[in-house]
Design a protein around this nucleic acid. Structure first.
Length: 454
DNA sequence: GCCGTTTTCGGCCCGACTGTTTTCAGTCG
């Protein structure tokens, strides 16, 4: 049976969970979690490395011990450390950790005091009022456990970045309208532009945190307030999306933005770096002793720790810090780098603009070329072009192109026979890049035309 | 359990909020 990185990472995570419940050395636990993350972010199968006889301890976060366990899992399909732990503790105990509000200490108490290791047992005990009797637990905790069990089915869902953007943008607009708010940003994985987002981390600069937070929790779409203090609050929206808000003063804004953009792994690595320089980095700034030496902007933070600016999209501790040190950070593709659009429709099929309108829009966006990719006659609902109309459009395109640089489209217009990708709405045109097939159709079409075949 | 510009031992990121306490442990991000 093939063993994938994810399988081994899951073993390490479970070992970490069980060790945590047993109250083991926190640093040993962290080492297992770091090992799991290293495997998930490796980018290739560790199995191919072992097949090649590579030394796994060369991987960051993998030492002699974890390397041996990886070999064991690949060779035998088992991890003796996990097997041993599972004999001591029921395997399903780790599921309780997933419930918000239940950490290792409480799960430990629930298991050792009340022999609880399943959701069903937990629910029964909570309903019978047994949980509130445990030391460190109370009525509220018991009630929250019941709530968490109820909500458990629909938690932990990640949503696509574009969907998150809809919630984020209206929340940002709302917060910007609150009096005293100086700046608003969405941090976290949203700012790092990950494909999916688990929750929204919103940062606000304002002198009066309490006032901002009062407005925040009163937002229309807020369903539940999970916590509310003077500098932070957490809510659930009606959609189930969790939103965390942090409020800091303007002088700490850069440090806070950096801190809450993460990723966690990136933060830990950079803090270590700062520590070695005798500096302390937290969400309020960079400190030498008690003196704050930076904090207002991210640029200040990077300057203070001696790194060039690292774009949020790169902050995953996957080599970007080393690359920054070496001056080898990659140049990211930006909107302004986009030279052309290889998929566009006009009113001739199901677009919303004329050829001229599309050319104007392309020129306005600074594009060099634009491909018009109408539907073929096969797609009647989209008013696809038959050969006659297609030829007429080609003529029109040729006429436009003959106008030279009037539109400043260096590559000009060109056409392809059909588009398989759905129509991209105006303003979203950068999202769709035509497949090679479109180009193929274009070239072939041009060739046929040159030959006089069509 | 990992790691090393204080390298084989002794460190390991840091702070806010909640609930249960009566000064703090547990959880979370």
């Amino acid at each position: 049976m093939p063993v994938h990185n994810e399988d081994i990472a899951a073993v390490f995570d479970e070992v970490a969970d069980l060790l945590e419940i047993e109250g083991d050395n926190p640093f040993r636990i962290r080492a297992y979690r770091n090992g799991a993350r290293a495997l998930r972010e490796l980018g290739r199968e560790v199995r191919t490395l072992t097949d090649q006889g590579a030394d796994l301890t060369k991987l960051a976060g993998i030492g002699k011990n974890l390397a041996a366990k990886i070999h064991e899992i690949i060779d035998t399909g088992h991890c003796s450390t996990l097997d041993k732990l599972r004999k001591q503790l029921p395997a399903d105990l780790t599921h309780l950790l997933k419930l918000p509000g239940l950490g290792p200490k409480r799960v430990h108490a629930l298991y050792h005091e009340l022999d609880i290791h399943t959701h069903e047992q937990l629910e029964r005990a909570a309903r019978d009022g047994l949980i509130r009797q445990l030391p460190g637990f109370g009525e509220k905790t018991e009630a929250r456990i019941l709530e968490a069990l109820q909500a458990h089915a629909d938690t932990g869902q990640r949503i696509k970045l574009a969907v998150a953007a809809r919630y984020a943008e209206s929340l940002v607009a709302y917060l910007q309208s609150v009096r005293g708010v100086e700046k608003v940003d969405v941090a976290g994985s949203y700012r790092r532009a990950r494909e999916t987002v688990g929750d929204l981390d919103i940062l606000v600069a304002a002198a009066d945190g309490r006032g901002v937070i009062r407005h925040f929790v009163a937002y229309d779409e807020v369903e539940t307030i999970l916590s509310q203090g003077s500098t932070r609050a957490t809510v659930l929206l009606q959609s189930g999306l969790q939103v965390d808000l942090r409020v800091v003063t303007a002088e700490s804004y850069g440090a806070a933005l950096y801190y809450f953009t993460g990723s966690r792994a990136h933060n830990i690595a950079v803090r270590r770096m700062a520590q070695k320089q005798g500096l302390k980095l937290n969400e309020y700034g960079i400190y030498r002793g008690r003196q704050r030496i930076a904090g207002g902007s991210e640029a200040e933070i990077f300057a203070a720790i001696g790194l060039p600016y690292i774009a949020p999209e790169l902050r995953e501790n996957r080599g970007e810090i080393e690359a920054a040190h070496a001056g080898l950070l990659p140049k990211l593709v930006e909107l302004k780098d986009l030279r052309g659009d290889l998929h566009a429709h006009t009113r001739a099929s199901d677009g919303h603009e004329s050829l001229r309108g599309m050319a104007d829009a392309a020129a306005e966006r600074g594009l060099d070329y634009l491909a018009i990719t109408e539907h073929s006659k096969r797609l009647t609902v989209a008013h696809g072009l038959d050969s006659k109309r297609l030829l007429a459009q080609l003529e029109a395109i040729d006429e436009f192109n003959a106008l030279g640089n009037m539109y400043d489209l260096k590559g000009g217009f060109f056409s392809s026979l059909r588009a398989k990708v759905p129509f991209a709405a105006r303003g979203q045109y950068v999202r769709n890049v035509a497949s090679l097939e479109h180009l193929f159709f274009y070239w072939k079409f041009a060739e046929l035309k040159e030959q006089g075949t069509i």
